[in-house]
Computed example of a mutant assay.
Amino acid sequence: MSRTLPDRIRHAVLFEAFALAIFTPGAALAFNHPIERMGVIGIVSATIATVWNFVFNLGFDRALIRFTGGVRKTFGLRVVHALMFEGGLVILLIPMVAWFLGISLWAALMMDLAIVAFYLVYAFLFNLTYDRLFPVPTVSAFEAAPRAA
């Protein structure tokens, strides 16, 4: 069985809300930019990341079901999941960060790589915690068995 639409929405919103609360003040200090500008970067990035989170996780779970028959993730698969998610996000965000902060694409990439390091750990821990707090419902053999009409 897979996650429901409301569960996926809850996951994406909680993921970004907690991340934004940590990211904005931390990034302002780490990158020596005003908290307001980093707040804008954080909010725009969170919006893009929320949409990406929903689309990526839906596609990842569908692929996982297709290839393995379920959505259970091993430790190694969780690492791959986090790396693929963050890699896609880097590609989506670098041009916006460079433009908004008035920095080169290279500087934006270096900044983004530092942010990715944070988010890799954060995404792994958040998803592990989320899966434990809100496990995917399992279907019993009785429920999955075809019923006679």
Rank of each mutant, 00 (worst) to 15 (best):
S2A: 06
R3Y: 10
T4S: 08
L5M: 10
D7V: 14
D7T: 15
D7Y: 12
R8I: 05
R10W: 03
A12N: 09
L14R: 10
F15S: 07
E16F: 15
A17N: 11
A17M: 14
F23D: 11
F23H: 10
F23T: 13
T24Y: 09
P25D: 01
G26P: 00
G26H: 04
A27M: 07
A30I: 14
N32I: 14
P34F: 05
I35F: 09
R37D: 11
R37T: 11
R37Q: 13
M38R: 00
G39E: 06
G39D: 10
G42P: 06
V44K: 08
T47S: 12
I48T: 07
I48V: 14
T50C: 14
N53K: 13
F54H: 07
V55Q: 05
F56I: 03
F56M: 01
N57P: 08
L58H: 13
L58S: 12
L58Q: 12
G59L: 13
F60K: 01
D61Y: 10
R62F: 12
R62K: 13
A63N: 08
L64K: 09
G69K: 01
G70M: 06
R72K: 12
R72T: 14
K73G: 08
K73L: 08
K73R: 09
K73V: 06
T74S: 06
F75C: 01
G76F: 05
R78E: 15
V80D: 07
H81M: 04
H81T: 02
L83F: 06
M84C: 09
F85A: 00
E86N: 05
V90L: 12
I91Y: 07
L92C: 07
L92H: 04
L92E: 04
L93D: 01
V97Q: 02
V97W: 04
A98F: 01
A98I: 02
L101D: 00
S104Y: 03
W106T: 11
A108Y: 01
D112C: 09
A114L: 14
V116T: 08
V116N: 02
F118M: 06
Y119R: 11
L120A: 04
V121K: 08
Y122S: 06
N127F: 09
D131N: 06
D131P: 09
P135M: 01
V136N: 03
V136W: 08
P137S: 05
V139G: 03
S140P: 05
S140H: 02
F142C: 13
F142M: 08
E143Y: 01
E143V: 01
A145Q: 00
P146I: 02
R147A: 00
A148N: 11
A148K: 08
